[in-house]
Nucleic acid binder design. Structure first.
Lengths: 351, 351
DNA sequence: ATTAGCACTCTTGATGGATGAGTGCCAATT
DNA sequence: AATTGGCACTCATCCATCAAGAGTGCTAAT
């Protein structure tokens, strides 16, 4: 009745491993017979059955019905990926494909898209990459153009080459010359400073300025305040190859598939999930219900954060059915994330 | 044996109409019995059957199998929407919802997204709106920022407030001051001209300039050439509520659904389809295979172009199953397109 | 501790009415 | 000449039954 020895000896683990591998490979519940033949250990099906019963008691596998084989539970998968998995190194061809795919463009935005497409094509699942989000954003340049009435188009550039624009409503109507002057003033004052620094300086300057300087400068500061008061960092991601997910029979349930795609549209759930993996570096894995979101019950998410200049700026990942070839997917994600980080690294000047 | 009178008398048309309406309403093939009760004309099922046989000979309806009722063919639907349909006017609540939804933002891009979302929510199908594409695009302002090496970030504004940016690779390395000077020069020369005019002027000026002016001006023109030589108008659309399509049993076929969503990702097919409706104004309808694209075999597309200042700039549409409530969808699309055009119209100054 | 044997359970697929909806056609009716 | 009632016929759908096969759990033997 009581479990023998340690609850999990090497043999049970070995069997769990081949069971998971086998199930991942052909998607059928695996029974004692096949497992007996598949495993190196020469054991009869009957013995295997005993071990399987133990594994089931531990909640690592379960059988969908009496006369079917066993399939891994979430805990089973977890144990598998954490300690049993033997990762396959990437072959040279794939590596070349990734570097090639990433080197096709200069524009960071296109590069994100390319990475997402690449990882989705390599894995035949859905690829997802978050838009880079830097801790410290430097203001590089700001510019104002008048629109009708009191509306002003603001264009500002952050970091190297990230262009943002928004429309603000000012208290009064400004002439083009006034706006030009304001931009010059603000550029001289704040260019090269971090956005956070600009915001706080702005508040301080606005108070002090009130007493000692010209109306024009005051106006400039007010406009700047309107510009920066709402956060401009878009929390967003690029998704590719969603349609690949329609090919997996395990996600066949119409409603499941629908809620999955709805989650992709709403974005917020996915973003929250990706944000979690942002903290850690290295590959992270959410298996099935571990994600905590209904829609992803039948899915696994393999992610890795990517870094530019040793700062983590985003996450790259793959979404697929729980039953995926983790030993291949993990290196794909790992390498692609690293290469993406490298490709995003602004080229250092070589004189 | 021969068809009586005119091939299609009023009665057959009347019956076709109620048949289509009935089928659209509850999705079941409709038989002679129900049709007999449903239609105003007091005819026995037997008579109806004769008429139905005629309609089938004309290719307007067909039956999926011997003992089922009839369903409309593409031609049947076509005849229905072209001449039989009685369009339902929009009720006030929906109208209010549309205007409200469109008035929530200033930014044209957000407005396109809002329109797409609105039409998809109102119809419970997929909404699609093309990014406005004007015939004549005016250059308003241009600006250069140096990047590393010989790369330059170009920011230019067209029309009222459309901001574009791209990275170009110049022949030589420019200082910030040189770039500033070039921008000033180009702004004074070309601001306010149409992009087409700028492009041709550029070529001419480049030749003439070669003989008579400074190197700086020549450089400026060269940079401008790099900027404008590739088209920048993105041919794109915003899609919403795709997931609604998963709810329709007639699109149930996994592979059909998949190829539909793949078409959405590739975009090119959809764009081509939408471009076709761009030419006509008023509501256009593609039914089933009429679109010419495999993926849309089971779908209908109801579109209307929308205009700003009497110039057609884009298309708004709805994608759903062939069996949709055309009499409701058509006014939805019609009105939303008109209101979108109005909302996009730059506000005229009111002093 | 391992294994052979065996009874048992449960899915899957095939088979075969029974039911009911709907048609097509023919002869009778108006 | 158009309409209608009647009737035989065709199919899809539903449901029950049955056999085959896979896999288990338990027990007794090794």
């Amino acid at each position: 009745m009581s479990l023998k020895n340690q609850d999990l000896n090497d043999r049970s683990l070995q069997l769990l491993k081949t069971l998971v591998e086998r199930y991942i490979h052909d998607g059928q519940p695996v029974g004692s017979r096949v497992l007996s033949k598949d495993s190196e250990l020469n054991l009869s099906p009957a013995t295997i059955r005993n071990v399987m019963a133990d594994l089931e008691d531990l909640g690592l596998i379960h059988s969908p019905h009496t006369s079917a084989g066993r399939i891994p539970t979430v805990s089973g998968y977890r144990l598998f990926v954490d300690s049993l998995l033997t990762v396959k190194p990437l072959d040279a061809k794939d590596l070349a494909q990734i570097s090639l795919g990433l080197s096709e463009t200069d524009d960071p935005n296109n590069m994100i898209g390319a990475a997402s497409r690449l990882i989705s094509e390599l894995t035949n699942m859905a690829g997802v990459v978050t838009i880079p989000k830097r801790e410290t954003v430097y203001l590089r340049h700001i510019e104002f153009l008048p629109l009708s009435h009191n509306r002003v188009l603001v264009i500002f550039v952050t970091n190297e080459q990230e262009v943002h624009n928004k429309v603000i409503h000012t208290d009064k109507v400004f002439s083009p010359a006034e706006l030009q002057q304001a931009a010059n003033y603000l550029n001289s004052l704040y260019a090269g400073h971090s956005l956070a620094a600009v915001k706080s300086a702005l508040l301080k300057d606005l108070q002090q300025e009130q007493e000692r300087t010209t109306q024009a400068m005051l106006d400039a500061l007010k406009i700047a305040k309107l510009t920066f008061e709402a956060g401009h960092q878009k929390n967003d991601y690029v998704l590719s190859g969603e349609t690949n997910l329609m090919g997996f029979s395990e996600l066949s349930d119409r409603d499941h598939l629908r809620s999955l795609f709805e989650a992709f549209s709403h974005k917020s759930d996915v973003i929250h999930l990706l944000d979690q993996s942002m903290k850690a570096d290295g590959v992270q894995i959410f298996i099935g219900k571990e994600s905590g979101y209904q829609a992803f019950d039948q899915c696994s998410l393999v992610t890795s954060s990517y870094s530019v200049n040793d700062e983590i700026v985003g996450v790259l990942g793959v979404i697929g059915p729980t039953r995926m070839a983790y030993e291949k997917i993990i290196p794909y994600v790992d390498v692609t994330a690293k290469l993406l980080g490298a490709a995003l690294n602004p080229k250092t000047s070589t004189p």
